[in-house]
Every structure is written in structure tokens, then in C-alpha cells.
């Protein structure tokens, strides 16, 4: 009889576990839905290429779900951006290596598709931000953000746009809180200088 009760308890535990897992999955879906657009815009600005940005966001989602989905939901945002930041850094590293190889073989005629200059984001072309804003300010802001170094841009976007605090931004960027403050301060100084004419 005891064995029967044990087996019944085990069955009900499994049922409860399935319910919990479904609730977790719903919460995870909601979280990813909430961050995916901002993540894409961050990747847009980092790569200047929508397709590359979509691939990076998808990679970030996979990495986040694989490594951090079991963490408490309060920790998800910095951890998701940590994965995205890692993917963006990898992308830039690969791009730099490719640029070095291209400069090494600079005597050879380069294919347009492999030309890093051709692949660099065009600062004159109005990006999504400029198109949405539909005015000079939007275009200036887009261009100023694209011009920022990656770490400064990430610090600005995570702190000022995503609303993470300094500690969470440090987790996302895998650096100290002091570094976050330094990156943010420099980013704000650059943006102030670049946008001064538009916001006065």
C-alpha cells in the first residue's frame, strides 16, 4: 500500500512539474518578446546590417535560453544582454580579423562582398531611428549612436534606454561598475557634443 501511495505521489509530482514548466515557458516567452525589439535595434546599430543583426539576436536568444533560462526571472534582463553583448563583441572581433586579412592581401583585387568599407554602416543613409523620427534630430541621433565605440554605445543603451542600473549593466557588459560609469560618461559627452546643435 505504501508503494502504491509513493507511486501516486510521484505521478502527481510529475503533473505539478509539467504545470510549472509550462508557466516558466510562458514567462520566458513574454520576457523574450519584451526585449527582442530593443535587442534588435542595439544589434542594428552595432552591425549596420539588419540580417546580421537578426542572426545575432537569434543567437543571443538561443544562448540565453540554453544557459540562463533556469535563473530567477529578475536576473534575466542583464543576463540576456550579457549574451547579446558577447555576440556583438564576437561579431566585431571576427570583422576586425577579416579586415586585417583584407589589408594583408590588399594588393590583390578585393571582392566587393568582402570589402569591410563596403560593409560598414553608411552614416549618411537614414537608419530606422531617423526614418521613424522623420526629422533631422532622429537622423543626427542615429548617426551619433552609430559613431560611438561599441562599449560606450552599449553602456548608454543599457543604462539610459533599457533602464538597467549600474550593477546590472556591469553584469551585462562583464566589467566593473566603475567601467560602466566611465563608458557612460564618455558616451554622454560624445552625444552632447554631436547633438548640441539639434537640441538647443
Amino acid at each position: 500500500m505504501h508503494q502504491l501511495l509513493t507511486a501516486i505521489n510521484e505521478q502527481s509530482w510529475t503533473a505539478r512539474r509539467v504545470d510549472t514548466v509550462k508557466a516558466d515557458e510562458r514567462a520566458l516567452d513574454q520576457f523574450l518578446k519584451a526585449v527582442e525589439r530593443r535587442a534588435l535595434r542595439m544589434a542594428d546599430m552595432a552591425t549596420g546590417n539588419r540580417e546580421e543583426a537578426l542572426d545575432l539576436v537569434q543567437d543571443a536568444m538561443f544562448g540565453f535560453v540554453r544557459h540562463y533560462a533556469a535563473k530567477p526571472s529578475a536576473e534575466w534582463a542583464p543576463l540576456f544582454y550579457r549574451v547579446l553583448d558577447s555576440r556583438l563583441n564576437d561579431w566585431h572581433r571576427r570583422r576586425q580579423v577579416r579586415s586585417r586579412w583584407m589589408s594583408f592581401f590588399s594588393s590583390a583585387p578585393a571582392d566587393d562582398e568582402m570589402d569591410p568599407v563596403a560593409q560598414a554602416p553608411d552614416l549618411q543613409e537614414p537608419g530606422p531611428l531617423a526614418r521613424v523620427a522623420g526629422n533631422e534630430i532622429g537622423q543626427a541621433l542615429e548617426a551619433a549612436l552609430v559613431r560611438l565605440p561599441l562599449r560606450q554605445r552599449q553602456a548608454f543603451l543599457l543604462r539610459m534606454w533599457e533602464g538597467l542600473d549600474v550593477a546590472a549593466t556591469a553584469v551585462a557588459m562583464r566589467c566593473s561598475e566603475g567601467s560602466v560609469k566611465t563608458h557612460l560618461s564618455r558616451a554622454l559627452a560624445h552625444l552632447r557634443r554631436d547633438l548640441e546643435a539639434h537640441y538647443e
Binding site: 530593443r38 534588435l40 535595434r41 521613424v132 523620427a133 541621433l141 552632447r192
Partner: peptide, 20 residues
């Protein structure tokens, strides 16, 4: 004056993310 232009900037960023 940071808060003024930062508000405008984040609003513009929000709109760019919303209107994909």
C-alpha cells in the same frame, strides 16, 4: 539639461523599436 534631450532620444529609440 541632459534629462531633456535624453528623454527625446529614448522616445525616438522607443519609436524605432516599436515601428519595425
Amino acid at each position: 539639461n541632459d534629462s531633456a534631450w535624453l528623454t527625446q532620444a529614448t522616445t525616438a529609440l522607443d519609436e524605432s523599436a516599436r515601428d519595425l
